[in-house]
């Protein structure tokens, strides 16, 4: 059992960056370009690790926060992979929600520690968006636990595919898309607007860590939603984990396509639209729960 978890963890640590390479290839295809090789993002990250270690001026906490969010992100993936096949605590969902929030908070604090207006504007945009998005995440996980009474992966097979659960999981996918800061939600980076905002002062290994963390984050949130979704139909832990990883990969490609046919939103537009969407879905789902459809 634990071998499966081990393999999954290795896959989950390696494949996100590879998938980013695939995403670039897809983007190139949609742009009618040839594009870089699929391993390009790995080359990039490794190359960044080989550069001088440079800490931006007056950014003492940046490095700490960066490594903290990387560590939490790895922990999240490791924890989830193990918990699905071998029970750890009866409150897996709570642990994951808490860790996810901490990691997001650490992630978003990085640019705030750097005294660069672009960085700070990028961070403040991200915060506005996160307030909506993370809030929704907590609400959705809460709803899921409330509907199904499940808080641990070991009992996750007990959930049944009702419409209102499906709606919640669908909203979790929206959450995972927004949290992946892809277009139209890449407003915190917005290269032509605020010169890559929260990335502006990062370079070399720091940038490498940042990008790698971002890839892991993208992977994890998709994986999480996929686990909840597939658990409705697949009841064995190992199979569930494997199929969720496959679904995550497929979703990654779908997200890549979506990101390339849209334009960037604006912080005010994005947060309002998002809030409305979440409220509608949550309302529908709650309504569905009480009407028992």
């Amino acid at each position: 059992m634990i071998e499966i978890a081990g393999v999954s963890i290795l896959v989950a640590l390696f494949i996100p960056t590879l998938l980013d390479g695939v995403e670039r290839k897809i983007r190139a295809r949609i742009h009618s370009r040839i594009g870089p090789p699929i391993l390009q993002t790995w080359y990039d990250v490794l190359k960044l690790f080989g550069k001088d270690f440079f800490v931006p001026a007056n950014a003492v906490h940046t490095v700490m926060l960066l490594f903290m969010s990387l560590a939490i992100q790895i922990l999240l993936i490791g924890y989830t992979c193990i918990a699905v096949v071998a029970p750890i605590t009866p409150y897996d969902l709570v642990v994951i929600a808490v860790l996810a929030i901490i990691s997001q908070a650490a992630f978003i604090s990085i640019p705030l520690t750097i005294a660069n207006p672009f960085s700070i504007i990028g961070a403040s945009r991200e915060i506005v968006l996160m307030l909506v998005n993370e809030g929704a995440f907590l609400a959705l996980v809460g709803l899921y636990a409330y509907y199904t009474g499940i808080t641990a992966f070991s009992s996750i097979g007990g959930a049944s595919p009702t419409l209102y659960t499906l709606l919640t999981i669908f909203a979790l996918y929206i959450f995972s898309y927004v949290a992946s800061s892809r277009i139209p939600f890449d407003i915190a980076e917005a290269e032509p607007e605020i010169a890559s905002g929260l990335l502006i002062e990062l370079s070399g290994p720091l940038l490498g860590v940042f990008l790698y963390t971002l890839h892991l984050k993208r992977f994890f949130f998709k994986l999480f939603a996929s686990l909840l979704l597939l658990a409705l139909f697949i009841k064995t832990g190992a199979l569930l984990l494997a199929s969720s990883i496959v679904l995550t990969i497929v979703l990654w490609l779908v997200y890549a396509v979506i990101a390339n046919i849209l334009g960037r939103s604006r912080v005010d537009l994005a947060s309002i639209t998002l809030l409305k969407a979440y409220l509608v879905i949550i309302a529908l789902s709650v309504l569905g729960y009480f009407l028992e459809v």
């Binding site: 009618s32 370009r33 040839i34 396509v257």
Partner: peptide, 19 residues
């Protein structure tokens, strides 16, 4: 309607070269 960009891309094919 914006999804049509995928059709446009498919029709155009790859236009860059391996120069």
């Amino acid at each position: 309607g914006f999804v049509k960009i995928l059709v446009i891309a498919a029709e155009a094919g790859r236009v860059t070269r391996k120069y």
